[in-house]
Measured scan of single mutants.
Amino acid sequence: HSLRVHINGKDFEVHNADEHVIRALEELIRRGADADELKEFLERWKG
């Protein structure tokens, strides 16, 4: 899957995101994670 996440006016393109990554991202958003947390998660995932 390809996923586009809009954080703090920046678009993050997440390519080849598997279900696990997408679910983790949705969980963060549901918990009310702020932009920094989401960005950190995506950067860690992209490795």
Rank of each mutant, 00 (worst) to 15 (best):
E37M: 09
L38N: 00
E19H: 10
H15D: 07
R30H: 12
I29M: 08
E40S: 12
V5H: 02
V21S: 05
G9H: 01
K46Q: 15
E43F: 06
I22A: 04
D18V: 04
K10W: 04
H20L: 12
H15G: 04
R44T: 15
D34Y: 05
I7G: 01
R4F: 11
A17E: 10
D18S: 13
L38A: 02
R44F: 12
E37R: 07
G47W: 07
R44K: 15
V14S: 01
N8M: 07
I7H: 03
L3Y: 13
A33N: 03
E19R: 08
V21A: 10
G9Y: 01
H20Q: 12
E40P: 01
H1S: 14
A17G: 05
V14P: 01
N16I: 09
F12W: 09
R30W: 10
G47L: 11
D34E: 13
H20Y: 12
H6D: 05
K10A: 06
H1C: 07
L3M: 09
H1K: 06
F12E: 02
E27L: 08
A17D: 03
A35T: 13
N8G: 10
G47D: 14
G32S: 03
N8H: 08
A35Q: 09
A17M: 11
R44G: 14
S2H: 09
A33C: 04
L28I: 10
E43T: 05
E37P: 01
R44D: 13
R31Q: 14
I22M: 07
A24I: 09
H15K: 07
A35F: 14
E13R: 03
E40F: 06
A24V: 10
I29W: 06
I7W: 03
G47P: 14
R23C: 04
F12Q: 01
K39Q: 10
F41C: 02
H15T: 11
K39V: 15
D11M: 13
V14I: 14
E26C: 07
L3N: 07
W45S: 03
N16E: 07
E37D: 13
I7C: 01
A33F: 08
H6Y: 05
E26K: 14
E27S: 08
L25D: 00
G47H: 10
N16M: 06
D34L: 08
I29E: 02
H15E: 11
R23D: 06
A17T: 09
R44V: 14
E27G: 06
D34W: 04
F41D: 00
F12I: 08
A35I: 15
E40I: 11
G9C: 01
G32N: 09
A17C: 02
H15S: 10
L38C: 03
E27R: 05
D34H: 10
F12C: 01
L3A: 02
G32V: 02
K46W: 15
H6S: 14
G47Q: 13
S2E: 07
H6P: 03
G32W: 02
R23V: 08
I22H: 04
I7K: 00
E19K: 11
R44P: 04
D36I: 08
E27I: 07
V14N: 00
V21L: 15
H15L: 12
E26Q: 12
A17S: 06
E19M: 11
G32Y: 04
A24M: 10
D34C: 04
I29H: 04
F41L: 07
A24F: 07
K46D: 14
A17I: 10
K39P: 01
E26Y: 11
G47T: 07
V5T: 02
R30D: 11
L38H: 00
E13M: 11
K10T: 11
W45A: 02
E43M: 08
I7Y: 06
L25R: 00
E40W: 05
A33E: 03
R44W: 13
R23S: 10
E43K: 08
H1F: 03
D18M: 05
G32E: 05
D18Y: 04
E40A: 06
G47S: 08
A35L: 14
E43A: 10
R23W: 10
K39T: 14
R4T: 15
L25S: 00
E43H: 07
V14Y: 06
A17N: 03
K10P: 00
G9N: 02
G47R: 02
E13Q: 07
R4K: 15
H20D: 13
V21R: 02
E37K: 09
W45G: 03
H6Q: 11
V5Q: 01
F12D: 00
L25F: 13
R4L: 15
E37A: 13
E27Y: 07
L3R: 00
E43I: 12
D18L: 04
E27F: 06
G9P: 00
A24R: 12
V5S: 00
E27V: 08
D34A: 10
R31G: 13
R44S: 15
E26A: 09
A33Q: 03
W45V: 07
E26I: 12
L42S: 02
L28H: 03
I29Q: 03
I29K: 02
E26H: 09
H20S: 12
A24T: 09
K46H: 14
S2Q: 07
A35S: 12
E19Y: 12
L3H: 11
G9D: 03
E13K: 03
N8Q: 06
D11T: 15
A24P: 00
D36W: 12
R31M: 13
I7F: 05
R31V: 11
D18E: 11
G32L: 03
E13T: 10
S2A: 03
I22W: 05
I7N: 01
W45Q: 03
H20K: 14
E19S: 10
R31I: 11
F41S: 04
D11K: 09
E37V: 07
R23K: 13
L28V: 03
G47F: 09
N16W: 06
E43V: 12
K10Y: 10
I7M: 04
E13V: 14
H6V: 13
R31D: 13
L25C: 00
E13D: 06
I22F: 06
A33V: 10
G32C: 05
E13A: 05
E19L: 13
E43G: 04
V21E: 04
L28C: 03
K46S: 15
N8F: 06
L28F: 06
S2L: 05
E19Q: 13
E19N: 09
H15A: 07
H6G: 02
S2W: 09
H20G: 10
H6R: 06
R31A: 13
H1V: 12
V5W: 04
V21N: 02
F41Q: 04
D18Q: 10
G9Q: 01
E27A: 09
H15W: 08
D34S: 13
K10L: 05
H20T: 14
W45T: 03
A35K: 05
E27P: 00
K39W: 15
N8C: 13
A33W: 07
